[in-house]
């Protein structure tokens, strides 16, 4: 069904119409990105197998390790696995949504960003969501199922589940803020790859509860580069070990980081010179 027909059928007004407009475009861009991968089935299979092996081996390693030691920073093996699954959930969903960011540098240095800017579409939306990743998409349902299974074993209360889900959304907002900051910096410095990879490496520190790190590293990865807020706090809220004050601080962090990254984007896009086109 064509976009115009969609909009006609939806019969929406104002902002709802705009959201629908962008949602349909996102579906189209996602479909195109998936088609590219589906044309290279062997590559798709090899990366999928690699990701699954990596996930299973790390999970097994954590299980052996914490079972043998009795606990990790006071958390049982089931709890540590839940931290790991929550980390993966945020990581995989953000990779699925924002994969296009990894291709942004080429867009800037080749001048192809011009082609995005002239379209009747928010360029930030196109740059962030332009290429959903099918490999991550395939891994989301089993990951959600595993998180649900382990979560249920921990017998959380209703409120803990609500906080957990809200903090997961907050984590995705922080992740989006980071990617916006990266693409903004890319316009100014032409550098993306290393910044993203360093962020990915730092994120991996959140594979396990941030409580294992010592200060000042723990402080830095919790409040300066908010890996802890993003990856550890949801699981902590779920386990009921995160106070209401820190939950509120997390939401404030999410809102502020998104606000400042958007300001940075507005500043950076004005600096774009289209030099290579």
């Amino acid at each position: 069904m064509k976009l115009k027909e969609f909009l006609k059928k939806a019969n929406l007004g104002g902002k709802a119409k705009l959201v629908w407009y962008y949602f349909v475009i996102w579906l189209k861009m996602g479909k195109n990105a998936f088609m590219v991968y589906l044309n290279q089935k062997k590559i798709l299979a090899i990366f999928l197998i690699g990701k699954i092996i990596r996930f299973v081996l790390f999970l097994t390693f954590l299980y052996f390790l914490v079972s043998g030691a009795g606990d990790l920073a006071g958390y049982t093996s089931d709890e540590v696995i839940f931290f790991f699954l929550s980390f993966n959930l945020v990581d995989v969903v953000s990779q699925f949504l924002f994969r296009e960011v990894y291709r942004f540098r080429t867009m800037v240095v080749s001048g192809d960003l011009d082609l995005v800017l002239v379209k009747p579409l928010n360029p930030l939306f196109r740059i962030l969501f332009g290429g959903a990743d099918i490999i991550d998409f395939i891994t989301i349902p089993p990951l959600v199922a595993a998180t649900f299974y382990y979560g249920a074993r921990l017998n959380p209360g209703f409120l803990e589940v609500v906080f957990y889900l809200a903090l997961l959304v907050n984590s995705l907002l922080i992740s989006a803020a980071f990617y916006i900051a990266v693409i903004s910096a890319a316009i100014v410095t032409y550098e993306v790859d290393h910044t993203v990879m360093i962020f990915r490496d730092l994120s991996r520190l959140g594979t396990v509860p941030v409580d294992i790190y010592k200060d000042p590293l723990r402080f830095v990865i919790t409040y300066i580069i908010p890996i802890g807020i993003m990856l550890s706090f949801p699981a902590k809220a779920f386990l009921g070990v995160l106070g209401i004050k820190l939950i509120l601080v997390s939401f404030l962090f999410g809102a502020f980081s998104l606000f400042f990254s958007l300001r940075f984007w507005e500043y950076a896009i004005k600096k774009y010179t289209s030099a290579s086109s």
Binding site: L72, I198, D201, L202, R204, L217
Partner: peptide, 25 residues
């Protein structure tokens, strides 16, 4: 810069392993 960034990444990667074991033992 490429090289320095690569080395920074190596340090970050080792921190996870280091603190994990430091916490366990």
């Amino acid at each position: 810069i490429n090289f320095v960034m690569w080395r920074v990444r190596n340090i970050i990667q080792i921190l996870l392993v280091l603190f994990l074991w430091d916490s366990l033992i």
